[in-house]
Amino acid sequence: MKVTFWGVRGFVPVPGRDTSVYGGNTICLGIKGDQGTNLAIDAGTGITNMGSSLMNKEFSRGEGNFSMIITHTHYDHIQGFPFFVPAMIKGNNIKIYGSNLCEKSLENVLENHLTPIFSPMQTLRNFNANISFSRLEPGKSTKIGNFQLEVTELAHKVDWALGLKLEGIQGSLGYAANVTYQKPADFKKAIEFFTGVDVLIHDATSTRLYDQIIVGDHSQDARDAVKIAGESGVKKLYLTHFHHTYTDETLEQLLELTKKRSDEMGYKELDLSLAREGNSFIL
């Protein structure tokens, strides 16, 4: 499986020279399976570039199949969807996965995002592709192409924030963006879930209270991510969902501080990197 970072920001997109190295688009991870399965995890503004990259293939002819997993419904995880070009083309099938834990369905949230007050698209019905929704249930495994997907509910302020595990033939990937662990039990749950994954992509911001993230009061290293990766026995950790006020320079400091923290915590084996927009790796 090929994994591409199309967007690595949390909260709000940050264009500008300060963010040109690591990128300013909001969160989106692209996955391509060896047998051609195409899927995205989260639909921040990064998904617009992913959409354009798909357009020279079956998607431009209206013969594409695409899956989108939304891990929670804050804007930074859905705001790229209205600009995802394959969704405009008749014949393409877009399947959107959300959680069954929320009161409001994901379809409802997206419709609300697209209402005429907020968007000239006005409604999901104005997208020409076949768009369908499916709810993921914790503890149940879902097949997407050649992948097996498993989800869990992680600690977060809103209704739900999913952690997920994607199993392919050559290995497995863990993903958790927008988590705010508060109690020891929150950590325990995540550690149990991610034990055994080969690569973990995890939120870089560490705080106990979500509000504090917005006002900038949070730890300057990604200690929560390190703890989860270290205790789960993960070898490779990518940090993502960066705070919107972090410039390229701040991010490099974050990496240094986190490496130091990781050594202090005794996870000397842990290979730690920053997610960088446009970069890919093969699993």
Binding site: P15, G16, S20, G23, N25, T45
Partner: peptide
């Protein structure tokens, strides 16, 4: 910009906000 912010070097001169 209109429609959506566009971070990236392609829009570095005129801006992406």
């Amino acid at each position: 910009r209109g429609s959506i912010p566009v971070p990236g070097t392609e829009t570095g001169k005129y801006g992406g906000n």
